[in-house]
Computed example of a mutant assay.
Amino acid sequence: MNFTETAWNIFNTSIEDYHAYDDVNTLINNTFPKDSLERILYAKNWIDTVQWHLEDIIRDENIDPAEALQLKRRIDSSNQHRTDLVEFIDSWFLKKYENIIPKPAAKLNTETPAWAIDRLSILALKVYHMSLEANRASASDEHRAQCQAKLDVLMAQKEDLCTSIDQLLADIENGDVKMKVYKQMKMYNDESLNPILYQKGQQK
């Protein structure tokens, strides 16, 4: 089994585990071995899955404004955790490939392995939920047909993305691609970089 097959299976395990409860307050139960990449991938998708449903909840037009603000704060925090974990996955790959010497003509990729894996995790969620819609008994035939067409596109995208990720990892391993990582440096959660936050602090 290649890397993306393993990752896809882990993502879907996380999604199924979450939907056994379907509650954004459900605590993660990650049974993969400590320090393993599998454990990290499961945790990554769990964050994505919970956030997917938080985004659904906050779009309720009848939501209480105070609850919406709390959810927005929670989503912001989730986004930061998501970014931190993606960067941790890249650190895992940097360690794995630390002894690989890139060839003189090695190319740079537009995104790192972990950010491509991030897209695969989100895609697994899209496939899961679109499949539910394509088979929802209470929906019209037209709705199910439209969702099935979209699901077909998502599955084609999954095949292409998996191939691209596996090719990228192979190219890094054989020295044809140089792995280079930049931190995302998100500013909105940093009290020293977000002017709304640091100006508020100066006014105290």
Rank of each mutant, 00 (worst) to 15 (best):
residue 19 H to N: 10
residue 25 N to F: 13
residue 31 T to V: 15
residue 34 K to R: 11
residue 34 K to H: 12
residue 36 S to V: 08
residue 37 L to R: 13
residue 38 E to F: 13
residue 40 I to P: 00
residue 40 I to D: 01
residue 41 L to E: 05
residue 43 A to Q: 07
residue 45 N to W: 10
residue 51 Q to R: 02
residue 52 W to L: 01
residue 52 W to K: 03
residue 53 H to M: 04
residue 54 L to K: 03
residue 54 L to H: 01
residue 54 L to T: 00
residue 56 D to S: 07
residue 56 D to L: 07
residue 57 I to M: 12
residue 58 I to N: 02
residue 58 I to Y: 01
residue 60 D to S: 01
residue 62 N to A: 05
residue 62 N to W: 04
residue 62 N to T: 06
residue 63 I to D: 02
residue 63 I to Q: 02
residue 63 I to P: 00
residue 65 P to Y: 13
residue 66 A to W: 09
residue 66 A to D: 14
residue 66 A to Y: 11
residue 69 L to R: 15
residue 70 Q to N: 09
residue 72 K to F: 14
residue 73 R to Q: 14
residue 74 R to C: 08
residue 74 R to S: 10
residue 75 I to R: 04
residue 76 D to M: 15
residue 79 N to S: 10
residue 79 N to G: 09
residue 80 Q to N: 03
residue 80 Q to M: 06
residue 81 H to E: 15
residue 83 T to G: 04
residue 86 V to L: 14
residue 86 V to E: 12
residue 87 E to Q: 12
residue 88 F to E: 08
residue 90 D to E: 02
residue 91 S to F: 09
residue 92 W to F: 08
residue 92 W to I: 02
residue 94 L to C: 08
residue 95 K to P: 00
residue 98 E to H: 09
residue 98 E to Y: 06
residue 98 E to W: 05
residue 101 I to K: 06
residue 102 P to N: 04
residue 103 K to M: 13
residue 103 K to E: 12
residue 104 P to T: 06
residue 104 P to F: 07
residue 104 P to Q: 08
residue 104 P to G: 06
residue 105 A to K: 15
residue 110 T to F: 10
residue 114 A to K: 04
residue 117 I to S: 02
residue 118 D to I: 02
residue 119 R to Y: 15
residue 123 L to N: 08
residue 124 A to C: 15
residue 125 L to P: 04
residue 128 Y to Q: 06
residue 129 H to G: 01
residue 132 L to R: 09
residue 134 A to D: 06
residue 134 A to V: 04
residue 136 R to H: 14
residue 137 A to G: 05
residue 138 S to N: 15
residue 138 S to H: 15
residue 140 S to K: 05
residue 141 D to Q: 12
residue 142 E to W: 08
residue 143 H to T: 14
residue 143 H to C: 07
residue 143 H to P: 06
residue 144 R to C: 09
residue 146 Q to E: 13
residue 146 Q to L: 12
residue 148 Q to M: 06
residue 149 A to Q: 15
residue 151 L to Y: 08
residue 152 D to V: 00
residue 154 L to N: 07
residue 154 L to W: 04
residue 156 A to V: 05
residue 157 Q to S: 14
residue 158 K to R: 10
residue 159 E to P: 01
residue 160 D to Q: 13
residue 162 C to F: 07
residue 163 T to P: 02
residue 164 S to Y: 12
residue 165 I to R: 04
residue 165 I to A: 03
residue 166 D to L: 05
